[in-house]
Computed example of a mutant assay.
Amino acid sequence: MVSSGIGEDTYCPRNVMEGREESATHQDALSEMDDIIFDTLDELFAKTGVSPSEIGIVVASVSLFSPAPSLTARVINRYKMRNDVKAANVIAVDLVKQLFKTCKNSFAIVVSTESIGPNWYSGKEKSMMLSNILFRTGGCSMLLTNNGAWKGKALLELTCYVRTHIGSDDEAYRSCFQLEDDIGNKGFRLTRDLPRAGAKALAKNLRVLLPKVLPLSEILRYTINHYRDKMIKRPAPKGSGPGLNLKSGIDHFCVHPGGRAIIDEVGKSLALNDHDLEPARMALHRFGNTSSGGLWYVLGYMEAKKLLKKGDTILMICLGAGFKCNNCVWKVMNGLGKIKMSGKTV
């Protein structure tokens, strides 16, 4: 626990705090989701002034809990949204981006969290106990729009999004795996291959994303140096990262706070310094690994430290089981106000 990077003030599901981790009920799972989703959405609607009746798209990014009716249906019912609202439960921001192509001047909400309570491991296998140390309760809700009239109010503008999946690689596929132990306790096995799988998926993703965001001069410099070194058979210096000056086109790095090993491996792969990795490390320390919602805690830390200025670009790096890497680049449009997540201000 001491070396995990997790602090002592993170949040656990109610059934775990009550000592019922071995007997979580369906209602426990629903209550955990409702607390996070409805609390953050109430804050979101109050802060933006957007009415639930104006929402045209609802996306819930939760991979370990799929009730019937769905989580998006619960949101639609709770806020009595209109009957033509489009609802989905996966892919989040990129899915909204695709739907916006056919839904003009629309509002979308994306809820990012994870169901931890029913998936708490109660056995004794060490490789499966690690998930109990890393994963914590938390989440956030975001409002997205393609309505041009809101450009002056937007905090961030999505400029680029690239998705990569390396599930065909057996080592990467098995690095984060949900299964039962020998006596039937369900949980997640996190292997030593996990940081390496993350680095591999990230490298493949950035080969597509970086040419879209870095200046042409930097791409040309890298290309010339790469082929020159290849011709004279000069090895890359140890710890040199990707060989590109990422900061020529990116100002901030929002790294998925999945664990200390993941953050360190991403930092090593991209040759990032401690200042670049501080937001991810501090989000991990304060909130733990809250799955897809964790990136927004990292962003909240950047805002709280007043690191973000109008015009800055943010590379958001998301890693997940499968193994997948979904990265996007945001441009800061206005000064960021306080970001509400799961009822706590960060």
Rank of each mutant, 00 (worst) to 15 (best):
L64Q: 12
P118F: 10
E54C: 14
I91W: 03
I76F: 02
S141P: 00
F45R: 08
P13I: 13
L144T: 06
M17A: 14
G148D: 10
G138F: 05
I36E: 04
Y79C: 03
F45V: 09
G138C: 08
N89L: 04
A68K: 05
D34G: 05
A108C: 08
K153I: 10
E8Q: 15
K80T: 11
S61R: 05
G138Y: 05
V75T: 04
A73F: 00
T48C: 06
K47F: 11
T10F: 14
I6C: 03
Y79S: 03
W120A: 06
D9L: 14
S127R: 06
L95F: 05
L134R: 04
V93S: 00
G19P: 00
T102D: 14
A24W: 07
E125F: 06
D9N: 15
L144G: 01
E114I: 09
N119E: 15
K153N: 15
N89A: 10
A46W: 13
T10Y: 09
T72P: 00
S131P: 02
P52D: 09
A73V: 04
K97N: 04
L134P: 00
R14C: 09
F38E: 03
G148A: 15
E43D: 14
S66Q: 10
I91M: 10
G139H: 00
V75C: 01
G152E: 11
G19E: 11
S66N: 12
S106C: 13
N105T: 10
I76R: 03
N15A: 15
L41F: 00
L143Y: 04
E43P: 01
K151P: 05
G117L: 10
V50G: 02
K126A: 12
G123A: 06
Y121K: 05
T102K: 10
A73M: 07
L41Q: 00
I36S: 04
M81G: 00
V111G: 00
P13G: 11
V85C: 08
M142D: 03
F65H: 05
K153H: 13
A24L: 13
R78W: 03
K104N: 15
L144H: 04
T40S: 13
L99A: 05
E22C: 15
N105Q: 11
E54N: 10
T113W: 03
D42N: 13
A24N: 14
K151Y: 13
R78G: 00
F107D: 04
L30R: 07
S51Y: 07
E18P: 03
M33H: 04
G148F: 13
M142K: 03
C103W: 07
M142S: 06
K151G: 15
K80D: 09
E21L: 15
S131L: 12
P13D: 11
T145Q: 07
M17N: 12
A88P: 02
W120H: 10
H26Q: 14
F38G: 03
C12H: 08
E32H: 07
E18V: 14
E8C: 08
V90P: 02
G152C: 13
V62H: 02
D39A: 10
N132D: 09
V16Y: 07
N147L: 13
P52M: 07
R74G: 01
S122Y: 05
W120T: 10
I109A: 02
F65A: 04
K126P: 05
D34L: 15
A88W: 06
M81S: 03
S112H: 05
A60M: 12
K124N: 10
K97P: 02
E22Y: 15
M129G: 01
A24Y: 07
P69F: 01
